[in-house]
Write a protein that binds this DNA or RNA. Structure first.
Lengths: 363, 363
DNA sequence: TACATTGATTGAAACGTTTGAACCCGATTT
DNA sequence: AAATCGGGTTCAAACGTTTCAATCAATGTA
């Protein structure tokens, strides 16, 4: 059939086939306002031919002319992090009805790729960009080129509002507090805490929330039971960290009845370590995570955790970005979302007689 | 700074700023062959100005002219399925060095979105398309429009080679056999099997591999221990299914020492069900999954499973697609990849005295 | 009869690139 | 002295759209 050299069917093909001019065909197929003036017969005629030939307007030519791409870029720093997906879903949900299309890029934790993709988005003239910084993100020259081309940008998972970029972040302090309060209320007193790595902006406030509640409850955190993940080598590094710290604690025979882990993956590592030693969760020791990612839900015991409203964060991000694109420019600011306690099966009252985690032994 | 109405810096801006013509600027910045003829001074001069202004060539204008987009579309049917990510990573790995950029779309299991995104890819003139059909995929009119615009396409996770589309699929029969053989060799004789849903093309061959090995081992599968997942409502539906079937088996007091689940998620559901009843994995009952997705790895006990070489499948797909794009057109065919047994902690010899799964009780 | 109005269609310019052909001009060859 | 060459640069056309302005026939109005 009338394939042109490009292999793609164009307006010209349809014009020829229908006997009308390119203009008329364009007006009909793009449903321009003028298409009301086009004779009904012409309209249907052109439409049928277009369908027969499998015509799709060339987005490149169209955007070039229209000077808008109806496209927004989503740059995920590590798409393999289960954390990302619900956010992406949230963004998509908001974007869909507004006719914008998401362009999703997976940076795979590679610094260089981040730049590549960002450039690519600029070259594709994305109308806006959302960055999902699941974990680490050092100096970014986002500012430079994205600013110069005045493309609205917004970041999730890191606070860059001070540098003039709108940011969305869970209220980590509140989350930490929520978690700690849950354990306290269950009656735990000897609680081990695995803090997040220094490089992560979430670590500090979460820890503050934990400490605040500890003092509220008149409890003192044993510093020998406080650990800190080091480095962020990937989403799985938390798992390894949790596993190692638990092994260490058990080897040193330090008594504890609960572990409050930095995130779900770390918590899963903790569970592994406890079970290795023959301890039961939650009967002998409670474990809490943070984030509420998918693996936490399908693990056994199902993980008690602090849920980040990931989907909502994505929706919020999309909404704010669309506002910015439409010119309702707000001051760049930090939006904190509210975390939620999700009680599942990995937490329970401490074993009685209370105190030592190692006295409830299996079998 | 010299922002034009579009907000984007164009060749014209740089031409004006540098005093050279648009042509020269283009030749320099796109590093066309002719750029060797351009005076060294001119080159550096133009480059500096371009950098200062934060120039990025307009991918739309460029592709329009060059008649190639260097873009390949990846359409994932459900990106939240952990199954997808390693595939995507594999594709990216192969694409990167060849200068192609992936355009990733998440269909979110919505039939309508699939069409939308496919159209979008056609409109963006993707040079090729890879579809990741993690689970279900009924009649698709892919054929129609994609063919008419002769865009090479390739599908992972479903066999459409009969309808003229190259496909990549794990050798399910071999995988099923591998799994069954592992359990047999451990000494299991009373093995419950949870088959995949009818709608899925993986289900049948996997089941065949299982049966073949069963007869090889002179073992008869008790049909009361064979179940079939029904419907595919989402990746989590396997989990629910596994959980329910185990509950049912236990309620009916049917003896079994191992469960061979259709996929990892189902297997995780099985583990949940067993633990609910106070049974230990693997001491009282072994559990096997299929796929080797991330949650299977971080669960406790770590899941013994059949690994699909997802990453490799992605790489294979990308390679084949690139070949097709470059005109090395092969006949559309089905490529079967080899599964691999991954032994972790969820399988072990059956409890002694062998036979009844319910005699090893906790505590 | 001339003039405005309407309805249907088309011409042509523009969007930002790329690129083959053309141009200019000084230097080399015949 | 004319012809050739070639380094450096620019012209102008093209890619596939969209859209304003223009055209043209037919109809209604003064």
């Amino acid at each position: 059939m009338g394939q042109r050299k490009s292999g793609h069917v164009t307006l010209l093909d349809i014009a020829r086939a229908s006997g009308f001019s390119i203009s008329t065909v364009s007006i009909v197929l793009s449903e321009a306002p003028l298409s009301q003036n086009v004779a009904a017969f012409t309209r249907t005629h052109i439409r049928t031919i277009a369908r027969q030939l499998g015509y799709h307007p060339d987005a490149y030519a169209r955007s070039l002319r229209r000077r808008t791409t109806q496209t927004i870029g989503i740059v995920a720093f590590d798409l393999s992090d289960p954390f990302c997906i619900p956010i992406v879903r949230g963004i998509q949900a908001k974007l869909q009805p507004s006719g914008y299309f998401p362009l999703l890029m997976d940076v795979q934790t590679q610094r260089a790729l981040f730049d590549d993709y960002l450039h690519m988005l600029l070259e594709r003239r994305a109308d806006g960009v959302i960055v999902i910084a699941s974990w680490v993100f050092e100096e970014m020259n986002l500012l430079g080129d994205v600013r110069k081309n005045n493309v609205p940008i917004l970041i999730i998972g890191r606070d860059l509002s001070a540098r003039g970029t709108s940011s969305i972040l869970v209220d980590n302090q509140e989350g930490g507090a929520l978690a700690m309060r849950h354990l306290c209320e269950l009656g735990h007193r000897r609680i081990a805490v695995i803090r997040g790595p220094q490089e992560l902006c979430d670590s500090e406030p979460r820890w503050k929330g934990i400490r605040d509640v500890a003092v509220q409850c008149g409890m003192q955190l044993d510093e020998r039971l406080v650990f800190q993940l080091l480095g962020v080598a990937g989403p799985a590094s938390g798992f390894e960290g949790g596993l190692q710290y638990v092994r260490a604690m058990l080897a040193r025979r330090q008594p504890f009845t609960a572990v409050l882990a930095f995130d779900d993956l770390t918590a899963l590592g903790v569970v592994r370590g406890l079970r290795e030693a023959g301890l039961r969760v939650p009967e002998d020791c409670s474990v809490m995570g943070f984030d509420d990612i998918f693996p936490a839900e399908v693990a056994t015991p199902a993980m008690t955790t602090i849920r980040q409203p990931l989907r909502e964060m994505g929706m919020e991000a999309a909404e704010r970005l669309l506002d910015a694109i439409r010119g309702k420019a707000e001051k760049p600011r930090l939006h904190r979302t509210r975390p939620e306690l999700i009680v599942r099966m990995s937490t329970a009252a401490p074993p009685v007689p209370a105190g030592n985690a190692r006295n409830g032994r299996r079998r």
